[in-house]
């Protein structure tokens, strides 16, 4: 464990807690893409298959349970909660996320570390996580008015993966043979997808104006 990875995990934890808190307290999911939340639930479900078979550490298990629990409960809130579901903007949240799942699955069947179910699912979860934010970014551009919490959620989600890249660089230089191209490239693509959001997020923060993404 290094400071970059710990900071990355804490930032990731903060992102899901910000979202859960927003939905739970104001009982609204305005501006939140259900598609992205469903993709994230799938990412965690396929990445943490080893949660009950390989015990790594208490921290690792607890964090996995939190990420699984929060992502599935956010999906439940938006789909099932009688008040929250009313604020879900299904006419705007129209990104066909199946077009993301299938290519990631095919890519995982072709590019993986070992051709086993677990390794293919691991690669699939990495590729899917890289693109899972797309429905949310598209929704933000459509809905124009980005409320602070949703903006913070997306920012923290992007920042966590950027911190993980620093973690991989640190581990590359401190651990011999630490080379994992699949993870690195997927993580880099993921962070690059946030690049323009980061730009507009900092612009709005610097000029102290409401965050607006160009259409």
């Amino acid at each position: 464990m290094n400071i970059f990875r710990l900071a990355g995990d804490m930032t990731h934890l903060a992102s899901v807690l910000v979202l859960l808190l927003k939905i739970h307290t104001i009982k609204s999911c305005a501006g939140v893409s259900l598609k992205t939340q469903e993709l994230y639930a799938l990412v965690f479900a396929t990445r943490y298959l080893d949660i009950f078979t390989d015990f790594i550490s208490l921290y690792n298990t607890v964090m996995k349970l939190i990420f699984l629990g929060s992502s599935f409960s956010i999906v439940w809130y938006i789909r099932r909660h009688k008040i929250v579901r009313r604020s879900y903007d299904k006419d705007q949240d129209t990104f066909r996320h199946y077009f993301l799942v299938l290519p990631c699955l095919l890519l995982a069947l072709v590019i993986h570390e070992k051709f086993t179910f677990r390794e293919v699912m691991w690669a699939f979860s990495l590729y899917l996580e890289a693109v899972a934010i797309l429905p949310q970014l598209v929704l933000l551009q459509r809905t124009r008015n980005i409320d602070n919490l949703t903006g913070q959620y997306v920012f923290l989600l992007g920042a966590y993966r950027a911190l993980y890249i620093l973690n991989w660089i640190y581990r590359y230089f401190t651990e011999p043979h630490f080379v994992h191209w699949i993870t690195w490239i997927a993580g880099l693509v993921q962070t690059l997808l946030y690049a323009d959001f980061f730009y507009y997020y900092f612009e709005s923060w610097k000029n102290n104006v409401k965050l607006q993404l160009p259409a």
Partner: peptide, 10 residues
């Protein structure tokens, strides 16, 4: 470089 070492990451 086994993937094992990456499995400790979230």
């Amino acid at each position: 470089s086994s993937n094992k070492e990456l499995k400790d990451e979230l």
